[in-house]
Amino acid sequence: MNARPRIQATDVVESLLVFLAIMALWWLASHQEWVSKVFLPTPEATLASLKEGLLDGALVGNSVDTINRMLLGWLLASLFGIALGAMIGISATARAWLQPTLEFIRPLPASAIMPLAISIFGLNASMVLFVVAFGSMWPVLLATVHGFATVQPRLREVADALQMSRTMFSWKIALPSAMPDILAGMRLSMTVSLIIAVVGEMIASQSGLGQAVLLAARSFRASELFAGVVLLGAIGFAANALLALAEKKLLRWQRP
């Protein structure tokens, strides 16, 4: 009965030890100047820049811009990915026709789409939002297709016996069955949306942590650069943790 909590506590302790080891290595490398402080600031300097940026509001404003861009792009990607994935996954004919096209487009990096997006939207916030939504849609789309395509045959037989329409079958049976795949795709999509949002801010010169990190790098303000990177890592960690908690709550009916 108590094995699972002990394992979880051990995992937490081990993760903390790894984190402390990385921090100790960073402290040693910066103070011993294995790498010039122009490129590798000390943890203390990074923490001071992070505190200063949060107190004067600069990092707070940039974080809000990046989070808003990330969330909006992720929501659009999830909406279109689930809708399109459900339509493709529920139909074997649609999968046969569209799967090769999806596999052709899926590996394209979002950075390769940016020149096309720039030509359509220009260097503005709409361009960044489009690229974020496009790039982060694929994990949700492919996960939804897989979830709907792998519904147990017995559930389909039950739906046929009850003379359920395809729409009713999709909503009542296929969607709950595919939910684990969909939520896993949405978690991956959130990480992708943060990455693309930062890259888009750098390229399109839009306000956000991406632009702040780029400007700090160009000015050789290493501590501010690392402060921005640390903040981006914290945002990604928090977003993943919240989605993991939501996934646990939504899928609690699967646990025995």
Results as ranks from 00 to 15, higher is better:
Leu16Ala: 04
Leu16Asn: 00
Leu16Lys: 00
Leu17Gly: 00
Leu17Gln: 02
Phe19Lys: 00
Phe19Asn: 04
Phe19Ser: 05
Ile22Trp: 13
Met23Asp: 00
Trp27Lys: 02
Leu28Arg: 05
Leu28Asn: 02
Ser30Phe: 01
His31Cys: 03
His31Leu: 03
Glu33Tyr: 05
Trp34Asp: 03
Val35Gly: 01
Ser36Thr: 12
Ser36Arg: 06
Lys37Met: 06
Val38Arg: 09
Val38Gly: 09
Phe39Thr: 01
Pro41Asp: 06
Pro41Phe: 01
Pro41Gln: 00
Pro41Thr: 01
Pro43Asn: 10
Pro43Cys: 09
Glu44Tyr: 13
Ala45Val: 06
Leu47Val: 10
Ala48Met: 09
Ala48Tyr: 07
Ser49Glu: 13
Ser49Asp: 10
Lys51Asn: 08
Lys51Asp: 07
Glu52Leu: 11
Glu52Val: 02
Gly53Arg: 03
Gly53Gln: 03
Gly53Ile: 01
Gly53Ser: 05
Leu55Asn: 07
Leu55Arg: 12
Asp56Asn: 13
Asp56Glu: 14
Asp56Lys: 05
Asn62Cys: 06
Asn62Tyr: 12
Ser63Pro: 01
Val64Gln: 06
Asp65Trp: 10
Thr66Gly: 04
Thr66His: 08
Ile67Thr: 10
Ile67Pro: 03
Asn68Leu: 15
Arg69Phe: 09
Met70Asp: 08
Met70Gly: 02
Leu71Gln: 07
Leu71Ala: 11
Leu72Trp: 14
Leu72Gln: 09
Gly73Asn: 08
Gly73Arg: 03
Gly73Leu: 11
Trp74Cys: 04
Leu75Ile: 14
Leu76Phe: 15
Ala77Trp: 03
Ala77Glu: 01
Ser78Cys: 14
Ser78Asn: 07
Phe80Val: 09
Phe80Pro: 01
Ile82Gln: 00
Ala83Trp: 10
Ala83Gly: 07
Leu84Arg: 04
Met87Tyr: 10
Met87Ala: 15
Gly89His: 11
Ile90Gly: 06
Ile90Met: 14
Ser91Cys: 12
Ser91Ala: 10
Ala92Thr: 15
Ala96His: 13
Trp97Thr: 12
Gln99Phe: 14
Pro100Gly: 10
Thr101Phe: 15
